[in-house]
Each structure stands twice: as structure tokens, then as C-alpha cells.
């Protein structure tokens, strides 16, 4: 973990101040539309720090809060972090856990991708991971805070945002998940199963059961799609 790597990552990730700031603002406005207080919204973005997890738990917001379903949803949708973490162990396995474990608090899809790319060019450097993670986190949390500082109130567009943006957040991640035509059957299975679960069981479980069914179909393929 070098200072040079930290600086390199920090500078490379500066554009994320803007993009994550905009995203955090949208998330903050959505929280605001739900009636969540500023402190809770900022803490949410700071501690959970995951657009996917926040979007999904937001869509499950109800009285009383379905805590177990929310935790399971966070685990399921963030399962990719397990693999990212396992891969980072291969890169930074020699580093002391007291340095690596706090850094992983800020692990994000983009910082992981950037770190892998940098490791190919300059060799593994956990400083780069930390440096690139910081603008992303500041943008995300700062954007959420800005939503409460801006003179906006809950209106029809804001209510629509609260209802639709979580789904749209996930939709924007979908193209990156498409591997090839073999993705089609698992995805169709997921869609049909989710539809059936939402219609006949409970909408809050449609993602987990639908996604699980699709993944089982994926696993029937001799090779990964």
C-alpha cells in the first residue's frame, strides 16, 4: 500500500465525485420523498454505501420494516462482493488485515474494476484501491446530504422517483451482466419465477426466489454463461 498508488487512484477516480454525487442526490431525494430524516438518510448512504442494496431495501420500505427480508436481499444482491473480496485476497494477501479490512469498507464495483486494471499496468497496490474509493464515497454521501440541503419538497415527480428509481438503478446495471445468448434461459426463468412469486406469494420475495431459480438454471450449463 503506497502513497503513490493512493494518489494515482484518488486522481483517477475524481470524475466519480460528479457521477456518484448525482446518484447520491437522486437517492437522497428518494429518501426525502419517503419521509426519512436527513441524519438517517446520510447514515444510510455512509454505512450501507451500496446503490443496489439501498435501492432494493428502499423498495421494501414498509411498516413494520421487513428486516430479515432486507438483510437477505442485501446478502443476495451484494454476493458479488464476496467474489471481488476473494479476488482482492489474491492481489493483496500479503497485506496486514488491519490495513486491508478498513479499506474494504469502501469497496465498490468501480473501485474494484479500476484496481484490477491498475494492477495489470503498475502491479498490485492497495493504496490505489483506497485512493479510488474516496471520491466515490464522498460523492455518494455528499450527494445524499445535498438532497436535504436543496429547497425541494415531495411532489409528484419526487413520488414517482421514489417509486421507480430503485428499479431503474438496477436496470442500468443489467447490460454489464449480459454475457452471451446462454444468459437468456436463466434470465427468462428468473423473470417468470419472479412474476409468479410477486403475484401469488409476496412481492418482497420475488427477487430472491426468482433470482435463485434463474441461477439454478445457470448452474445446469456445463460452463458459465
Amino acid at each position: 500500500m503506497t502513497a503513490a498508488g493512493f494518489r494515482r487512484g484518488l486522481v483517477a477516480a475524481l470524475p466519480f465525485l460528479l457521477s456518484n454525487g448525482a446518484a447520491g442526490l437522486v437517492m437522497g431525494l428518494t429518501y426525502k420523498g419517503l419521509g426519512l430524516g436527513a441524519e438517517h438518510a446520510i447514515l444510510f448512504s455512509l454505512l450501507v454505501y451500496s446503490a443496489t442494496a439501498q435501492a432494493i431495501t428502499l423498495s421494501m420500505w414498509a411498516h413494520p420494516l421487513p428486516v430479515v427480508a432486507m438483510v437477505v436481499a442485501c446478502i443476495a444482491t451484494n454476493s458479488r462482493y464476496l467474489l471481488m473480496g476473494a479476488h482482492l485476497r489474491q492481489l493483496f494477501g500479503g497485506l496486514a488485515p488491519r490495513k486491508m479490512l478498513p479499506t474494504l469498507f469502501l469497496l465498490a464495483d468501480a473501485s474494484w474494476l479500476m484496481t484490477n486494471s491498475d494492477a495489470d499496468r503498475n502491479g498490485p497496490d492497495a493504496g490505489y484501491l483506497l485512493g479510488s474509493s474516496i471520491p466515490m464515497a464522498i460523492g455518494w454521501v455528499g450527494g445524499t446530504a445535498l438532497a436535504y440541503a436543496a429547497p425541494l419538497t415531495a411532489n409528484e415527480p419526487l413520488r414517482l422517483a421514489a417509486a421507480l428509481l430503485p428499479t431503474m438503478f438496477i436496470a442500468t446495471l443489467l447490460p454489464s451482466q449480459w454475457k452471451n445468448v446462454r444468459s437468456l434461459w436463466p434470465w427468462l426463468t428468473s423473470a417468470v419465477a419472479a412474476l409468479l412469486v410477486a403475484r401469488f406469494v409476496d412481492p418482497s420475495w420475488s427477487m430472491l426466489i426468482g433470482g435463485g431459480c434463474g441461477t439454478l438454471v445457470s448452474m445446469m450449463e456445463p460452463k458459465d454463461a
Binding site: 436496470a171 451482466q177 444468459s183 436463466p186 428468473s190 426466489i209 433470482g211 458459465d224 454463461a225
Partner: peptide, 9 residues
């Protein structure tokens, strides 16, 4: 293999 399927659902 799970993420893409979970996103679709």
C-alpha cells in the same frame, strides 16, 4: 452466476 438473475427478478 447469481447477480444477473437477481437483477432480472
Amino acid at each position: 452466476l447469481a447477480p444477473g438473475n437477481l437483477f432480472i427478478a
